[in-house]
């Protein structure tokens, strides 16, 4: 077997930056796209769209509930609204409106949360969104996406736009390690195997995909062969990829920058339980709020880096035997 190419961290653009740039391209292609933002356009990067299409940019002020409702009204009238803010604000303050005004009538509203997870860093827990995958997945009909890097974010924002129906996309603040080339194809609900292996599978999303790839290299040297799957769509899940991973590798670790309660891990575990039950371990935030600090420090302190993924893999492999 030829030696694997080692994964190296090379930083690309932040996923929020990829979102902002892609939104401008989409705005040029489709006159029905309207963007709403709640006084954070310079952070969510919808400012690029606002500059080029001022008539199709709606400033709603610091009023996320109203913003989601306005998005719903635009969608009722046939527009394709993007409503954007920090994940913590659009999801939590807009949740009632996402439920009753968007999900319930199944409207074509695109919700993009930025500054997700604890990697927002210095701003601290009030701005950190660590529960929105759980909340978004609880909305019937919603598609929920958490891209791993710049290129996947660009492609998945396009997929989200082409999809008719409500979508939530989770993006982050910091520059993001590059996982994919620009030509990689993405499809909603179709996971991507980014590394093959036979002993165990790590299913990850967002920043944890790169960490899982790093962990896989470490473990390979220890004789543990790790499959890594980027489950960029948390809903609908790629059940086939999960079932195959369980059947072929016999153990699964799920890794995410999110509370372990209600996140991707819980959702994957449900499919594993329904298909091929195998031992599982979970890497995520454990029943707490984080704190201020630099993103790298926080990810390390709260157990969301490669060494944590590797430790979970060793644990699950031991349980397998």
């Amino acid at each position: 077997m030829p030696a694997k190419t080692k994964f190296e961290i090379k930083l690309g653009a932040a996923t929020r930056e990829a979102f902002g740039r892609t939104l401008v391209e989409l705005g040029r292609e489709n006159k029905d796209i309207v963007v709403c933002d709640a006084d954070l356009s310079k952070s969510t990067m919808t400012t690029y769209f606002a500059k080029e299409f001022p008539d199709r940019f709606v400033s709603v002020g610091i009023a996320e509930a109203d913003m989601v409702g306005i998005g719903a009204g635009l969608a009722y009238a046939g527009k394709i609204p993007f409503v954007s803010s920090f994940s913590a604000f659009v999801m939590n303050k807009g949740f009632e409106q996402l439920r009753v005004s968007v999900a319930y009538p199944n409207l074509n509203v695109k919700v993009v949360g930025t500054h997700s997870g604890i990697s927002i860093g210095e701003d601290g827990p009030s701005q950190m969104s660590v529960e929105e995958i759980s909340l978004a997945c609880s909305l019937p009909g919603f598609v929920v996406i958490a891209p791993a890097d710049e290129n996947s974010c660009k492609a998945l924002i396009r997929e989200a736009t082409a999809h008719v129906g409500p979508v939530f996309v989770r993006t982050g603040r910091p520059k993001c390690p590059i996982v994919y080339g620009a030509d990689q194809k993405f499809e909603i609900g179709k996971a991507i195997q980014v590394a093959d292996g036979k002993d165990v599978t790590v299913i990850a999303n967002g920043l944890l995909v790169a960490q899982a790839l790093l962990a896989a290299d470490t473990l390979d040297a220890e004789g543990i062969s790790v499959r890594v799957i980027d489950m960029h769509t948390a809903k609908p899940l790629d059940r086939d990829a999960i079932r195959k991973a369980a059947a072929e590798t016999g153990a699964i670790v799920v890794a995410e920058e999110h509370l372990v309660d209600g996140g991707l891990g819980v959702r994957v575990a449900q499919v594993v339980a329904e298909t091929v039950p195998v031992p599982m371990e979970f890497v995520g935030i454990q029943n707490t709020y984080a704190e201020s600090g630099q993103p790298e420090e926080l990810l390390e302190k709260y157990g969301l880096v490669a060494v944590d993924v590797a430790a979970a893999v060793r644990k699950v492999v031991a349980r397998k035997r």
Partner: peptide, 30 residues
């Protein structure tokens, strides 16, 4: 609206209608 397509909006949780009207009004303007 899932049951009556001719309705303009699903409502029931209070407070939401003005925001919906703004969205519809903005679409009409555009």
């Amino acid at each position: 609206v899932r049951f009556i397509h001719s309705l303009e909006a699903s409502t029931g949780s209070l407070g939401g209608g003005v925001s919906l009207a703004i969205g519809m009004g903005l679409a009409a303007r555009l």
